[in-house]
């Protein structure tokens, strides 16, 4: 079994009187596509926001195991540091691109910390000092590589806001990948895509996994989830319901009950199809 990259231990998130996530534990392993599923309002996005530093969890631990042995506690760490140091990248349920900037610029912004390691270096670059040119050229190369992989190289100089929906989704993934993540967190990447686009997305995600980046995704499209996931975690009402391979999850009674409210073989067949 592959090494554990991220372990979430009894994660709890409370908003006032609302317990959104209640002691959820799971693990993300290197080289896996891990899917986080569950009915609407189950707390999936909240878990994501805790992992990526947008929320400070009220309880529990999120540990990133780094290859050099150092463990990093992500709970309560500011979001930008989680990306910088723990190498966790994410996309958003409602796409958040820099709409007024070009496709290429979006990917360049993602490499901000590589091109400008600190403010002093950033200011020195005004006078052409430092190895800025070199770093910038390398960043453009990497952006070109990812544009090729998501099939957007032809549209590199167009504003991101003018791309069709499916292309925006792919661009957001490419942008996240430009930060060199070890875990890529995707919040409903297949939402609003047509069947052909979903297939392309599945292929892209599997190629990202094969390159050694673990993928953690929230998804409602069960076709995509069951086809590409190595590991599925089910949440319902903020509680972890099941944890296993896609085949195990398909057969799990609790999961079926959570999705349908009762056991009905015909509807189950519809969902897992």
């Amino acid at each position: 079994m592959a090494e554990v990259l991220l372990s979430v231990d009894r994660l709890t998130m409370r908003f006032g009187g609302l317990l959104a996530v209640n002691a959820v534990s799971f693990e993300v392993r290197a080289g896996d596509i891990t899917a986080l599923i569950g009915p609407n309002g189950a707390g999936k996005t909240t878990v994501f926001n805790c992992i990526t530093g947008f929320y400070k969890p009220t309880g529990g631990r999120i540990i990133m195991h780094r290859p050099n042995g150092g463990d990093l506690e992500l709970a309560g760490m500011p979001g930008f540091l989680i990306n910088q140091r723990a190498k966790v990248a994410r996309t958003f349920q409602n796409i958040r691109l820099f709409a007024g900037m070009t496709v290429l610029e979006n990917l360049m912004v993602a490499q901000h910390n590589t091109v400008m390691p600190n403010v002093a270096r950033g200011l020195l670059a005004v006078f052409g000092l430092g190895n800025f040119r070199h770093l910038e050229a390398a960043a453009i190369e990497k952006a070109r590589h990812w544009l090729d992989r998501v099939g957007l190289i032809e549209r590199a100089d167009e504003p991101a806001g003018s791309l069709p929906y499916g292309a925006q989704r792919r661009l957001e993934i490419a942008r996240a990948m430009c930060t060199d993540p070890r875990i890529l967190c995707l919040d409903e990447p297949a939402a609003g895509l047509n069947p052909r686009e979903s297939d392309e997305l599945s292929a892209l995600l599997m190629s990202i996994r094969d390159d050694g980046c673990a993928v953690l995704l929230i998804e409602h499209d069960m076709g995509v989830v069951m086809r590409i996931s190595d590991h599925v975690i089910v949440l319902d009402h903020g509680v972890g319901l099941a944890d296993g391979t896609p085949t195990e999850i398909k057969a799990n009674k609790h999961v079926i009950a959570a999705y349908l409210g009762e056991e009905d073989p015909e509807d189950i067949a519809e969902i897992v199809a």
Partner: peptide
């Protein structure tokens, strides 16, 4: 004008476009 073409200026513009996305990309807002 020069800063606008450098990472710092690009980060400013990205901040104007979407602050949350900036944070997710590791930019110190």
């Amino acid at each position: 004008s020069r800063l606008r073409r450098l990472p710092l200026g690009r980060a400013w513009e990205a901040l104007r476009e979407d602050e949350i996305a900036c944070r997710a990309l590791g930019i110190n807002v």
